[in-house]
Amino acid sequence: MNQCKTFIKQLGFARGVIVAFTVLLFVLAFVKDLQMGQLISDCLSRFGRHGILVLSLLPFVKGGLGLNFGLPVGVLCGLVGVVFSINLNLAGYDGLAVALAVGGGLGIVIGLFYGWLLNKVKGQEMVVGTYVGFASVSFMCLAWMMLPFNNPTLVWSIAGKGLRMTIPMDDTYGRILDNLWSFTVGDIWVPTGLILSFLVACILVALFFKTRHGMAIIAAGQNEKFAIASSIKPNRTRLLATTLSTFLGAIGIVIYSQSYGFVQLYTAPLMIAFPIVACILIGGAGIRTATMFHVIFGCLVFQSLLTVALPVANEFIGGDITEAARIVISNGIILYALVGVGAQK
């Protein structure tokens, strides 16, 4: 009971409201006799699908860089990986492995550049990151049209040039992880492979933060002066944190795309950072503090909320409000974190 109390206290008012709201929606769904099994299965899928993307924010916060609104930078790397593997007509695990390798590799290279840039703009990482993200998405819009991909599944059939807006992955490796070891309990379908991949990523990242370099990132993120006095170079730990974050962003979108079953290109990743950032914040993180618990809990709560909101809203007022509500909640919680209320002291 006492633990419960301190937990609620730590959550703060705004986050408490969101958690309560999610619970309320579930109750309403149950009362309205919606298909609970289906809903919970969807929640699980969405949780696993977004997991690594949310996880990618953790090194960034821990490294003292704030919230990574430049997430699209990593995401674009991952998308290049996926498109590359599909272009080679690779299917199944081969395709997934190539996508992860190419996307992740690119993520590391681009992450180093991004980290170098962020070291030059210390103190303004968030706003610079936001616009670097926007700019790279719009740059890639040009690139998607001009890059010499030629696989007919990827390219507009009429023009014979330029990638399609969305590319189905049914024939390659769509939902391959979701279906791995998946099982059904009652009405609930559990995408075991997907969730396992997320948890494995979490464990690896948690272990990384227990190594010398991981500890150095934490130290420099929390207190630069302390770090310097212990001969840690903050610019290097920041670079490492940014690179790790970008790498995870790339991996995250590959996992996301295979679970979603489509690759979405062009302007699709433009706003991706905001709901993802909202996830970790709802979990209880702030601009300067974040833990693995915040990642997992936040992802679970927010993705469940989004899943269950649409059918419930349809029952009551109409579905188009959920889009507006999503905008209000995700940006509301970011605003809440930016103005520093409810930050853990």
Partner: peptide
């Protein structure tokens, strides 16, 4: 001399 600034990680 700067204990809270340089000497400690307050959240660890």
């Amino acid at each position: 001399e700067d204990r809270r600034g340089t000497g400690l990680l307050l959240d660890e």
